[in-house]
Design a protein around this nucleic acid. Structure first.
Lengths: 202, 202
DNA sequence: GTTTATATATCTATCGATAGGTAGATAAAT
DNA sequence: ATTTATCTACCTATCGATAGATATATAAAC
């Protein structure tokens, strides 16, 4: 069994500061949010899914903004943890990038839905400010990691530009895959990303 | 003033089969849907925006599914019309591709929101079947156009793979641009797409 | 040890607001 | 007269959120 990176996987959430029930709520909320966006999750549905009443969900997350913030923050933390340190890696740029590709691939395959922050990022102007800020932070963090991962000494290429390009491709490929119900769009993009990076960086 | 392709622009919707009021409703629905998804538009809000009561919106679009279908179908038609015939173009592949880039660029710039079908495609599993089918058709149509646009006689590259890759990049770049409130992600991706295509196709 | 207090986690019941949707009247245009 | 387009008025269902009660567990005070 493959590890779930972007996807919810209780086994890898060891250092959660949330109670078991709160974590369970976040799990359901995250999966549902990835498929339908922020407004697609309701306190009642969450409550039903974890076997409590909606008022009890409000106990753990008083406002819906708190819930959204928690979902995105935990998601970001999990992704960054899976990515690890971008600096301390030996190996080629392409090898380094495989970690990023695996994370996104597993996220798509496991849940058959786009990246949480893709879904929420698209509706950023429609989100509570706090939640939008968490989403913004996700992209800035992952972009920063990717820039580092691409910054090999030999290359004179602009790592920032390529990081933005690569992340865009991966995010968009997930959307195409879900929208057309054909994951080949993702796998194909993965392949061409490898080619491009191999050609440009070394 | 630039022409709005993906964006709503009444001037270019000459052959609509909708009444003026219905078109107005579709305009508002489309813009709102791009920012918040399918559930973000309500009959009451639409009614208020166009100066009628919600029951009158139901007159034009009995069910919300009808509204969603109409919005996406019109959007797709407008984009395909703007793209024109991919075959009859003289010029380089890159030049041919500029039309696609301009459409997406203008869409992002004019409305500061992602492509309608990016927003809806991400939540495809959450949409009414009819609406999801329209979204699927959008991507298949634009992909088909792009494949043709890339299929120059001299090139031996796989046009289908590259079409999927390019569209993914553009879609994802819009998401990053909106989510981080930094359109440079889009413009940067545009630039690197040009480079990549120029290197691979001729 | 027993009592007192506080925190945790849930419940029932309800609120006002809003969602999509419908029935039937009205007014204008053809 | 019929069609087109709108209205008023209403329905049921669900939304996020709150009030107030309850059971349990831990912790502190006596």
């Amino acid at each position: 069994m493959s590890r779930a990176y972007l996807s919810v996987d209780k086994q890898m959430m060891t250092k959660h500061t949330y109670s078991p029930k709160a974590s369970e709520i976040l799990d359901v909320a995250e999966n549902h949010m990835r498929k339908g966006g922020f407004d697609a999750v309701s306190f009642r549905d969450l409550a039903g899914a974890v076997g409590v009443k909606s008022a009890s969900v409000h106990y753990h997350f008083p406002q819906k903004t708190d819930l959204g913030q928690a979902v995105v923050a935990r998601y970001r933390g999990r992704v960054l943890e899976s990515l690890g340190d971008a600096d301390d890696v030996s190996g080629t740029t392409v090898e380094r990038l495989e970690r990023l590709l695996t994370i996104y691939r597993t996220a798509l395959t496991d849940a058959d839905s786009v990246c949480l922050c893709n879904m929420l990022g698209a509706e950023a102007q429609y989100l509570p400010e706090d939640v939008a800020a968490e989403v913004d932070m996700f992209f800035k963090s992952v972009l920063s990691w990717t820039v580092k991962a691409l910054s090999s000494a030999e290359s004179q290429q602009n790592a920032e530009e390529w990081a933005s390009y690569l992340l865009s491709s991966l995010q968009g490929a997930m959307v195409l895959s879900v929208a057309t119900n054909d994951h080949n769009h993702y796998h194909n993009t993965e392949k061409l990303i490898r080619q491009s990076v191999q050609a440009v960086f070394r």
